[in-house]
């Protein structure tokens, strides 16, 4: 692995914290261990790609609360829970809130690595999607207002003639706008355009 992925590790038990850090480091992760949830939240950097491995029951702020904080913004840090008390209600709540996995202590290395790599993949995927959307957004912002209007109508599935009637112009003009818009966005088919508009939530 050329670039080390970061794993935020939070557990109030120093022994467990140290052992899990050692294990994850041995696997090649860049581990940032925290025994205090508060300190972790203060130092948490969303820009760093990677995941968080959280203990569920901790004094002051427990794992589920940390998860809530971590998923409150745009960026959703993937979370793997490690718990001593694997009770079903807690695990259900955690999974519903988007946890990657819910592991019970003592955790086996394979399961942990598996969960962490899935989390890292999820993080990578979401980061890739995020950058894709950002570039698409940048392309959309280059469109003129008329081209933007045409885009909306095309995504809505209207024919050029219909669009022209709607906008009070002729079909030919619409065609020109349409080809220029497609060119700007770098999209060749209407299907791709629709997919992009969905992602960017541009249908309205």
């Amino acid at each position: 692995m050329t670039e080390k992925l970061t794993v935020y590790l939070v557990d109030d038990d120093p022994g467990v914290l140290k052992a899990l850090s050692r294990l994850l480091r041995a696997e090649g992760y860049d581990v940032k261990p925290y025994s205090s949830p508060q300190v972790f939240l203060e130092e948490h950097d969303v820009a760093l790609p990677g995941c968080a491995v959280l203990d569920v029951s901790m004094p002051g702020l427990d794992g589920l609360e940390i998860q809530r904080v971590l998923t409150a913004g745009d960026y959703h840090r993937p979370v793997v829970f490690v718990t001593g008390k694997g009770d079903i209600p807690t695990s259900v709540r955690a999974m519903k809130a988007g946890a990657i996995d819910f592991l019970t202590k003592p955790v086996k290395d394979r399961e942990l690595f598996d969960a962490v790599s899935r989390a890292e993949a999820r993080d990578g995927e979401s980061r890739r999607l995020h950058s894709e959307l950002e570039s698409m957004q940048a392309k959309v912002s280059t469109l003129t207002p008329r081209e933007r209007e045409v885009l909306t109508h095309v995504v809505a599935g209207r024919l050029n003639k219909q669009i022209a009637g709607e906008l009070g112009t002729v079909e030919k003009t619409i065609k020109v706008h349409r080809s220029r818009m497609m060119e700007k966005l770098g999209i060749r088919t209407v299907a791709d355009l629709v997919r992009m508009a969905e992602k960017l939530n541009l249908s309205k």
Binding site: A19, L20, A26, K105, P106, K108
Partner: peptide, 28 residues
């Protein structure tokens, strides 16, 4: 009992993780 099990579980977790870490380190 639950809490006490947790108290035993913590060191067990640490032991297991340390042991596995050591194994992984040895493979390098």
């Amino acid at each position: 009992s639950g809490s006490i099990a947790h108290e035993v579980n913590q060191p067990l977790t640490a032991i297991l993780s340390n042991a596995q870490a050591a194994l992984h380190l040895l493979k390098q």
